[in-house]
Design a protein around this nucleic acid. Structure first.
Lengths: 212, 212
DNA sequence: CGTACTTTGCGAGTGCCGCTCATGTTAACT
DNA sequence: AGTTAACATGAGCGGCACTCGCAAAGTACG
């Protein structure tokens, strides 16, 4: 709900340590993947004792969740920045820009290929209650955040007020984009260019129902 | 490459045991999720000694991968069956049928909500070589299988020969469908009806570039 | 039926992992 | 300086994935 961290790093040193742990987590995800990733190795590489690791992160999933959140923040920041720099003529330009930035981060940001930010990493709670599912909430949140931010951007760009089911449509578009781009990077580690083009086409076609 | 199993169950008893292990794996995935799933518990519930478990499955991921493969087979079988029963008038009917069947399986097949068959579950190999990535191969394979089967079905249904980039388009469509339907079931455990409708619309719009 | 051989069944044991917690260290305030 | 609170640390604990040596059950052939 509040934060993915157990204790928010108050002092400069703590903050640096948390950042370092996230950095090492990212490169380790690239190197060996989620299953083989160990909290001890993350702590060792970040030069942080294991006990301190658990002061900040609730568990291994919390670590990855925090990384996904940081990736999300970076993505939104960079997209916003790019928009303010280059004015757009049409809403399709916004889509291209967002996808291009996503692709750029897939290529340059360590770990982004494994957990961009849409990742769910599955953890259903028991059949009834007992320890509410934090991973799912997080995924829903992240998706909602991206869609919401894009909605705001689209509204600022367009004169006409957005339609009824537009929110849902954006959520669908973000989810589909994420999946297809993952596919593009699975086919080709550098990102299959044709598939990235198809991805843009997919979203354009779909959203043209809701936008002029 | 060949099979996800270490040793192919030769006798009737072995085959039943493998099926039972997959069954229990599926319900456990629903109950506690992938991270909390243990091979011991799967073996215990299936009444199979742990040593025997590892005769058939290479590891925990192999178990889940085998389940995904079984789900894929079941899906293709059921879709094929439904097609032969109810003749279709237009290619959009094929899409609806496939999506409806996917939704039906999400609702009824244990574990299908966690690992339908598009699941990747991430396991990149090292930066260079060393123990090739089986999970990724599997995901690519499964996606390719679905797309290929749908392509064949589409060709049988349509007179015109399919276009150039149609294969890629189908792969994109399958991937996007998978992702959006997952979203629909994350929003609502029974499957958000509006979102399922949006999913169909997304695919229809996109594929209308490639089909009449 | 007996013997030699192959295949399959088994679970105690091994090493390593996620995570905790008692104890030590530093800061903050009076 | 004395008191209290906040943070740091890593040995250790329970439990996990997975192995391996041996038992049991087929199979082949005389």
């Amino acid at each position: 709900m509040t934060s993915t961290l157990r204790r928010r790093p108050a002092q400069r040193r703590s903050l640096e340590r948390v950042e370092r742990m996230l950095d090492e987590c990212a490169v380790l995800l690239d190197e060996i993947g989620y299953d083989a990733l160990t909290t001890k190795e993350v702590a060792r590489r970040a030069e942080v004792p294991i006990g301190t690791f658990y002061q900040f992160f609730p568990d291994k999933q919390g670590l990855v969740r925090a990384l996904a959140r940081r990736n999300l923040d970076a993505f939104l920041r960079r997209v916003t920045e790019r928009i303010s720099r280059a004015r757009l003529g049409h809403w399709t330009d916004l889509i291209d820009l967002a996808i291009d930035e996503f692709v750029a981060m897939k290529r340059t940001t360590p770990g982004f290929g494994v957990v961009d930010f849409g990742e769910v990493l599955l953890t259903p709670g028991g059949p009834a209650l007992e320890g509410t599912n934090r991973m799912l909430d997080s995924a829903l949140e992240n998706n909602a955040i991206v869609a919401d931010r894009l909605r705001t951007l689209a509204r600022d760009l367009l004169d006409a007020p957005v339609g009824e089911g537009f929110d849902r449509a954006l959520l669908v578009a973000v989810e589909a984009t994420d999946a297809v781009l993952k596919l593009a990077f699975r086919m080709d580690p550098a990102g299959d260019a044709d598939m990235i083009a198809e991805c843009k086409q997919l979203v354009r076609r779909y959203l043209s129902d809701h936008l002029p």
